[in-house]
Amino acid sequence: SISSRVKSKRIQLGLNQAELAQKVGTTQQSIEQLENGKTKRPRFLPELASALGVSVDWLLN
């Protein structure tokens, strides 16, 4: 799922939720909701993929 991929990649990069949120241009709460499965397809998906160094396709599939 996107939530597990985001969380595992974030941890692999040594980032906390607030640091990832800053790179993406969103809030820590938005990252938390995404990782908890409350958000399925965030509006900041391209920025998120870029910050994590992955493709949008990788996040979604």
Rank of each mutant, 00 (worst) to 15 (best):
L45G: 03
E19K: 05
L60S: 07
L59F: 06
Q17Y: 08
T26I: 11
G53A: 06
N36R: 10
L15W: 14
S55V: 05
F44Y: 14
E47L: 10
G37V: 03
S4E: 15
S8T: 12
R41K: 11
S4I: 12
E47C: 08
A18I: 10
K9N: 03
E35R: 01
S1A: 11
L13R: 05
E35P: 01
V24L: 08
S1C: 11
L52T: 00
A21F: 00
N16G: 11
K9C: 10
V54W: 03
G53N: 10
I11L: 14
V56N: 04
K23A: 11
W58Q: 03
I2P: 04
Q33K: 13
N36S: 14
I31N: 01
S1N: 12
T26D: 04
I11V: 11
A18K: 12
T26L: 08
G53R: 09
V56C: 07
G14K: 08
L59S: 00
G53H: 09
I11C: 10
R5S: 05
L45T: 04
L59C: 02
V24K: 01
Q17N: 03
L45W: 05
S8C: 15
Q12N: 07
I31K: 14
L60R: 08
T26F: 04
L34T: 03
Q17H: 09
I2V: 09
P46R: 15
N36G: 10
K38Y: 14
D57S: 13
N36P: 01
G25R: 06
N61R: 10
K40E: 14
S50T: 13
L48F: 03
G14T: 03
S50P: 02
T26Y: 04
Q33E: 15
G14M: 07
L48M: 05
Q22D: 12
K9S: 06
L20G: 00
E35S: 01
K40D: 12
S1F: 10
G37I: 03
L45K: 00
P46C: 10
L52C: 01
R41P: 07
V24P: 00
N61M: 11
T27F: 05
K40F: 13
S1K: 09
P42S: 06
R10T: 09
Q33M: 14
L15A: 01
L15E: 00
S30P: 02
E32H: 10
Q33N: 15
S50F: 14
R41C: 13
S8P: 03
D57P: 08
E19V: 06
L34P: 03
S8N: 13
G53P: 00
E19L: 06
I31S: 01
Q22L: 13
S8A: 14
S30L: 13
N16V: 05
V56S: 06
V6P: 02
Q17T: 15
G37T: 04
I2R: 02
S3C: 10
S8R: 10
I2S: 04
L13H: 05
E35A: 01
L20A: 01
Q29M: 11
S4P: 04
T27Q: 05
R5D: 03
Q33L: 14
A21K: 03
Q29N: 11
I11Y: 07
A21P: 02
T26R: 06
Q28S: 10
E35W: 02
S55Q: 07
G53D: 09
W58Y: 09
L48Y: 02
R10D: 01
G14A: 06
N61G: 15
I11F: 08
R43M: 13
G25F: 05
E35H: 01
T26C: 14
I31R: 01
L48V: 06
V6L: 06
V6F: 02
A49S: 06
K40P: 13
K7V: 10
Q33W: 14
R43P: 15
V6M: 06
R10K: 00
G14D: 05
A51G: 03
R10Q: 01
G14S: 07
L59E: 00
P42E: 04
A51H: 05
K40I: 12
P46T: 13
Q12Y: 09
D57I: 10
L20E: 01
V6W: 00
W58V: 03
Q28T: 14
L20T: 02
Q33A: 15
I11D: 07
R43G: 14
S4C: 13
G25E: 04
I31E: 01
R43C: 11
S1V: 12
E35G: 01
A51V: 13
R41N: 14
G53C: 09
I2F: 13
L60Y: 09
R10H: 00
E32R: 12
S3E: 07
V6A: 09
L60H: 06
S4M: 13
A51I: 10
L15N: 02
Q17E: 09
I2L: 15
L45F: 06
D57E: 14
V54T: 08
R5W: 07
I11A: 08
Q28V: 15
L48E: 00
G37E: 05
Q29A: 13
A21T: 01
R41L: 15
L52K: 00
A18H: 11
G14H: 07
A18C: 10
S30D: 15
K23R: 14
E47A: 14
L52G: 00
A51M: 06
S50R: 11
T26E: 07
T27C: 07
G53T: 04
L45V: 08
R10W: 02
G37D: 06
